[in-house]
Simulated assay, not measured.
Amino acid sequence: MAVVSSPLSEAVQRAAGQALQGALVDLIDLSLTAKQAHWNVTGRTFKTVHEHLDEVVATVREASDSVAERAMMIGVHPDGRVRTVADGTVLAELPPGAVPEDKAVSSITEALAVVIARFRDRIAATEDEPVTQDLLIGITAELEKHHWMFAVQR
Rank of each mutant, 00 (worst) to 15 (best):
M1T: 15
A2H: 14
A2S: 13
V3T: 07
S9F: 06
E10G: 04
V12W: 01
Q13A: 08
R14D: 14
R14I: 01
A15E: 14
A15T: 13
A15P: 03
G22T: 05
A23R: 08
L24N: 08
L24Y: 05
V25S: 00
V25K: 00
V25Q: 00
D26T: 08
D26A: 11
I28G: 02
S31F: 00
L32W: 01
T33G: 05
G43F: 01
G43T: 00
G43L: 02
T45E: 14
T45L: 11
F46V: 02
K47I: 13
T48Q: 15
V49G: 00
V56S: 03
V56G: 03
V57M: 10
V57T: 15
T59P: 15
E62W: 06
E62Q: 12
S64D: 12
D65C: 04
S66C: 09
A68L: 06
A71T: 02
A71E: 03
M72L: 15
M73D: 11
M73I: 10
I74K: 02
G75D: 10
H77N: 10
R83M: 10
T84N: 07
T84S: 12
T84E: 05
V85Y: 02
V85R: 03
A86F: 04
D87E: 14
V90A: 08
V90I: 14
A92E: 14
L94G: 06
P95S: 07
P96I: 01
V99N: 00
P100H: 03
P100T: 10
D102A: 08
A104T: 13
V105G: 04
S106R: 13
S107V: 01
I108V: 15
E110Y: 08
E110S: 13
A111S: 11
A113L: 10
V114Y: 08
I116R: 08
A117E: 15
R118G: 11
R120T: 10
D121W: 07
R122I: 07
R122A: 12
I123H: 03
A124E: 15
A125L: 13
T126W: 13
D128G: 12
E129K: 06
V131K: 03
T132V: 10
Q133L: 05
I137N: 02
I137A: 05
I139K: 01
I139H: 03
T140K: 03
T140P: 03
A141I: 14
E144T: 10
H146P: 01
W148Y: 12
M149V: 10
V152D: 10
R154L: 15
